[in-house]
Amino acid sequence: MSEHGAGPAIETSGLIKIFGKNRALDGLDLTVPAGTVYGVLGPNGAGKTTAVRILATLLRPDGGEARVFGHDIVRDADAVRGRVSLTGQFASVDEDMTGMENLVLIARLLGYRKPGARDRAAQLLEAFGLTDAADRQVKNFSGGMRRRLDIAASILNTPELLFLDEPTTGLDPRSRNQVWDIIRIVVAQGTTVMLTTQYLDEADRLAGRIAVIDHGKVIAEGTPGQLKASVGAGSVHVRLRDASQRPEAERVLSKALDAPVQLEADPVALTARVAGEGIEHAAAERAARALSELAAAGISVDDFSLGQPSLDEAFLALTGAPARADARTDHPATSEETAA
């Protein structure tokens, strides 16, 4: 926003948070430009929620510094609170109260007088398609409706910075798309959004820049294009009719794709990463060429698909080590495969 000139929305340096012996944040450095969606991507336990809670002034860091629009989050916490809104990982709305009551409550706490608060709440319910559910207790809302109410509460006063902590985790595809659309509109209004997610695909679609974090540190940062180029455009998954042809198939694939081929536990399955030039076409072309060379070598293929890189694969590429075992990779959008 103009008042802050060209300064970044968030700047952290060496942020540390320790729970017992666990270093949830271990020297986190972030610079979030104003006016964009900034994606923070990482597996469960990476420190995403801890980072968001510190930046929203809910937790004190044990070391390092952070500024939000130039205001120190510890010394100047109240100035930060006046500029940010938070939609937490676990619904930041009151389950026992109705949709209307939740919004009126927050409106009153922002300083709206009684009639004004009701009007404002009604406007937001309408814009978020929740008018019919206004007088229903939130515990009877679906996951998607709850998320929308949560975001509505966060933009009651248009915030300069909105934190969305895993806003689509656990939502069905349709609700996820609704949340994505809302985020795009919110950003178009000038609000900066910091979005955490476990899904590469989600960060890719929404974010202008992405920081990949693991064990409380940034392990990669850049535009989605830069990250995908370093991660690779995806993997081809091949299933053969005949297990005895696998050594031959491995040789053909590794030559055609110019990449190491992984033999799966299933004796007829192979996987190979497709090197990415940042252009998805190229990956599809290479995959198609690999398929025709398999056919030319007389290898019978039962199934052949090109998948987007999962968070696991991204981690493998970025760190040389798989994401931690508790990382979830079962997001439908990342396993969406395009049959070739």
Partner: peptide, 20 residues
């Protein structure tokens, strides 16, 4: 049978409520 499942976020409506 959610009301609002078929909800499509409308840019004008949302922009209007966000207008500072």
């Amino acid at each position: 049978t959610e009301p609002g499942t078929a909800y499509v976020p409308a840019a004008e409506a949302l922009s209007a409520v966000m207008a500072p």
